[in-house]
Design a protein around this nucleic acid. Structure first.
Length: 857
RNA sequence: GCCCGAGUGGUGGAACUGGUAGACGCGCCGGACUCAAAAUCCGGUACCGCAAGGUGUGUCGGUUCGAUUCCGACCUCGGGCACCA
């Protein structure tokens, strides 16, 4: 008996599928379509286990849908712009290799290497649609979209306080600043005032929020994260009159607490602050102090409230004689609302901290149910719950909601205020001071200002000679790139040297896949057929950044006439990470798994030296901790199918999975076992053999039931992405095939064909080999998915549990739908029941048909 | 601090709308085959108990004939947001 040779089989079928063009996507057709997409990879050079898990899941769905008769689009491409390529070039510079390898060379070499690694997984991908975002043929269209967005006022240039990453030497979007640090470099982000390019994502704040409700096939968690990120809050915007007769706009969500106000505070970055600072040296010092704390991340959490009394006084909107001091306060952000607030210390923690420090009045104006307004105190801590208004003149006695409405109505009537909705979401700062990105197709002309490049001049290509031996952006330092003529007046002008954030590249690639050779950014006929993506799969880490930007871009492309839809991804799945144990020697140095030897007693030692090794917890695979396992090595050992199987089994797909060598071996053993089941079977009738008309019994009937039960279960599990359960079902069916080895030949054939077809999407090479061994001339990938016979998934009898007072005391097997009296009688006859009842008469017997009997004694 | 999510054997995890807790895998134990080993096959495996039986889904309480599932409080872990007015 021949062992299954995974290497040979995998190479063979990959060749076969390729030469028969099995995975070329058929053109637009009347067939129902299914667009399956996994987040495309950054070409770092080598695939990792996370890729394997992600692309295996997508591949299973693509193959499954294909076998169910769908027209499937399953493409692959490369998110190919980005900093690592530039860093590699710089590393070459420091290594003395003159101006450095061009990032393009590094990137395409990596793509080449990773493509063959992905192909070794046997993915059912239409490789003719492959592209990289750094192909001029791709970013040309992105530049066109940028110009269209500019025309539609979805792109603008503005001077603003921006996040500056001093290590990567570029600005960052708000979404890319995490805990005050750059998302890539980890460096503390500084604030700088610079002129930058923005996407007007806030045009869709409300729509992006409301449409989340319609994304029913997205994880609740992701929707919630986006909801919080957009951060809608309803409130009131109104103005205070200042002592110098200027007006100061504030925003509040608690207008009901206006009579509890004891100060007004403005941001250190507020225009009024800047105005006042011109003639106030102490205020200038104060502002400088605020800025310093703002950038030292560790201090942010503990930062104390600081204020500076400007000497200005604001009149209370309902009492001109009531004057409130105006402070500049470090906790007021210019980026939210109007950059100015009124402080009500009785009902807000921050205002309370501030008022306590500066000895300002702290008045309760909302009193909780059951408290006496005369004695209720907020001196120690603010009260933020519901209640009735007090000490608030015409509001007294109203509840919070009613009071909010009353104040808003009165201020609106007086023309002093307006109900408004505020969002936390800011416009997307999308320009980067980087050379390896999509050039922004704009020109700066001394006479005409900022002028868009003509469509006919696209693409604005990156130069072939970039010198990384310079400070700052090599594109800016390039001798000729930026010198051009103005598209409007024809005079000498300067080209924009900033490039687009790489998140722009990934914001519309899914649309390009519909027809990657289209002369326009998208082929409208193709996108109308293929979009939206029916199943999108990727990591949770993109819950906000990529997924929000792509939703924005889709709307922008809708408004500029390229797409007819608003939501790019109908269904989203976020898969868990791949973990591995970590190992450290006595010196605290990390060791690679292959440097460690496990002892039978559970301890571990370093290979070769035998020095003791501490086995740490399973954590996300990362190069720094060395707890990585190279997919290609595992494929060489166990075959791609076993590794794919491993990635699908055991853990639910949304949860993290722990990599272990023994687990991989188990998968390999199962692959061998399936192969044996198929090849060692004797005297199987030929393909297409009919199962006899006679009534089946014994093993034959049991095996048929097992087969059809498994088909029904696996079909359901795969449709719902429950890969781990589908895997378990496959094991169960394999066990049944072994158990009922004496079943009728045609029944055994049916069972074997079913298991082979069902593991097809998961272990495609093995399945193909087995399919052939079963005597089929056509490929398994061209074979339709098996159908379960409902009559066989149901038995005509059922075993139900018998409980006494809720505790299981026995079980009875009865015909389905057996009369209650019969079931009761059977139940009462059970040994365990008789023993426990000890002659007592049951008070009550509950019979749930076909489910359970519970005797209450 | 606020907002989510999760706690089930030695282990990863099953359990449909409240109805036999632990499917299936890994590991472990025993057996068969073998000169032996590997591979494979068969059997066992929540805990206590000789057994009858008892106890068990983070903890405490509640609803119910019946709760891993529903409700309340708490504990632990994971994630997100964080002066957002």
């Amino acid at each position: 008996m021949a062992r299954y040779n995974a290497k040979e089989s995998e190479e063979r079928w990959q060749r076969e599928w390729h030469s028969r063009n099995c995975f070329l996507t058929p053109a637009v057709s009347d067939k129902p379509k299914c667009y399956v997409l996994e987040m495309f990879p950054y070409p770092s050079g080598r695939i990792h286990m996370g890729h394997v898990r992600n692309y295996t899941m997508g591949d299973v769905i693509a193959r499954f849908k294909r076998s169910q008769g769908f027209n499937v689009l399953h493409p692959m491409g490369w998110d190919a712009f980005g900093l690592p390529a530039e860093n590699a070039a710089r590393d070459n510079v420091s290594a003395g290799k003159n101006s450095g390898t061009h990032p393009r060379e590094w990137t395409y070499a990596n793509i080449h290497a990773m493509r063959s690694e992905l192909q070794a997984l046997g993915l059912a991908i239409d490789w003719t649609r492959e592209f990289a975002t750094c192909d001029p043929e791709y970013y040309k269209h992105q530049q066109k979209l940028f110009l269209d967005f500019y025309k539609d006022d979805l792109v603008y240039r503005s001077e603003a306080d921006v996040n500056w990453d001093p290590v990567d030497m570029t600005v960052l979007a708000n979404e890319q600043v995490i805990d005050g640090k750059g998302w890539r470099s980890g460096a503390a982000v500084e604030r700088r005032k610079l002129s930058q390019w923005f996407f007007r994502i806030t045009r869709y704040s409300d729509e992006l929020l409301r449409a989340l409700d319609g994304l029913e096939k997205w994880p609740e968690k992701v929707r919630l994260m986006q909801k919080n990120w957009i951060g809608r809050s309803e409130g009131l915007r109104f103005s205070f009159e200042l002592s110098n007769l200027t007006r100061l706009d504030v925003f509040t969500t608690r207008p009901d607490t206006l009579f509890g106000a004891s100060f007004v505070a403005i941001s250190p970055d507020h225009p009024l602050t800047e105005e006042l600072a011109k003639s106030d040296a102490r205020l200038r010092d104060f502002i400088a102090q605020c800025r310093k704390i703002g950038t030292a991340e560790a201090e942010i959490e503990t930062a104390e409230k600081m204020g500076y009394d400007t000497g200005l006084r604001a009149a209370h909107p309902f009492d001109p004689d009531w004057k409130l001091p105006v402070y500049v306060a470090n906790f007021v952000l210019m980026g939210y609302g109007t950059g100015a607030i009124f402080g009500c210390p009785g009902h807000d923690q921050r205002d309370h901290d501030f008022a306590s420090k500066y000895r300002l009045p702290i008045l309760p104006v909302v009193v909780p149910e059951g408290e006496d307004p005369k004695t209720f105190s907020v001196a120690k801590e603010p009260y933020v719950g519901p209640g009735k208004l007090a000490n608030s003149r015409f509001l007294d006695g109203l509840d919070v909601e009613a009071a909010k409405n009353e104040i808003a109505s009165r201020l609106e009537a007086q023309g002093k205020g307006k109900r408004t909705v505020n969002y936390r979401l800011r416009d997307w700062l999308a320009s980067r001071q980087r050379a390896w990105g999509c050039p922004i197709p704009m020109v700066h002309c001394a006479a005409c200002g900022v002028v868009p490049v003509k469509d006919s001049d696209l693409p604005i290509k990156l130069p072939d000679d970039l010198d990384f031996n310079v400070k700052g952006n090599p594109l800016d330092a390039h001798p000729t790139f930026k010198h051009t003529i103005c598209p409007t007046c024809g005079g000498a002008a300067t080209r924009e040297t900033d490039t687009l954030d790489t998140f722009v590249d990934s914001s519309w690639y899914f649309a390009r896949f519909a027809d990657p050779t289209a002369a326009d950014p998208v082929n409208r006929e193709a996108v109308n057929y293929w979009l939206p993506v029916d199943q999108y799969i990727g990591g949770i880490e993109h819950a906000i950044l990529h997924l929000l930007y792509a939703r924005f871009f889709t709307r922008g492309m809708h408004d500029t006439g390229w797409l007819k839809l608003d939501e790019p991804f109908a269904s989203l799945f976020t898969q868990g990470m791949v973990l591995h144990e970590s190992y450290q020697n006595a010196d605290g140095n990390w060791l690679y798994p292959e440097e460690v030897e496990k002892r039978p007693d559970g301890t571990a030692v370093a290979k070769g030296t035998g020095a003791p090794v501490t086995v740490g917890p399973s954590i996300r695979m990362s190069k720094s901790k060395k707890n990585v396992v190279a997919p290609m090595g595992m494929i060489a050992n166990y075959g791609a199918d076993s590794i794919r199987w491993y990635m699908l089994s055991d853990s639910p797909p949304e949860r993290d999975v722990d990599w272990s060598e023994s687990g991989a071996e188990g998968c390999w053993r199962f692959a061998q076992r399936v192969h044996r089941l198929v090849t060692e079977v004797e005297a199987l009738p030929p393909p297409g053999a009919k199962i006899g008309d006679g009534v089946l019994q014994g093993s034959s009937l049991d095996l048929r039931r097992a087969t059809h039960g498994a088909v029904a279960a696996v079909t359901d599990d795969l449709a719902n992405l429950r890969f781990n359960r589908a895997v378990a079902q496959a094991y169960t069916l394999a066990n049944a095939i072994q158990q009922y080895a004496d079943a009728d030949g045609a029944v055994r054939r049916e069972a074997l064909e079913a298991i082979v077809l069902m593991i097809g999407p998961m272990m495609p090479h093995l399945a193909e080999t087995c399919w052939e061994a079963l005597g089929h001339e056509t490929l398994l990938v061209d074979t339709p998915w098996p159908k379960a016979d409902a009559a066989l998934t149901k038995s005509d009898s059922v075993t139900i549990a018998v409980q006494v007072n809720g505790k299981r005391r026995g079980e009875v097997t009865v015909a389905i739908g057996a009369p209650e009296d019969l079931v009761k009688a059977e139940a009462l006859r059970q040994d365990g029941v008789v023993r426990v009842l000890e002659g007592r008469t049951p008070k009550k017997i509950i019979v749930v048909p076909n489910r359970i009997v519970n005797i209450v004694a």
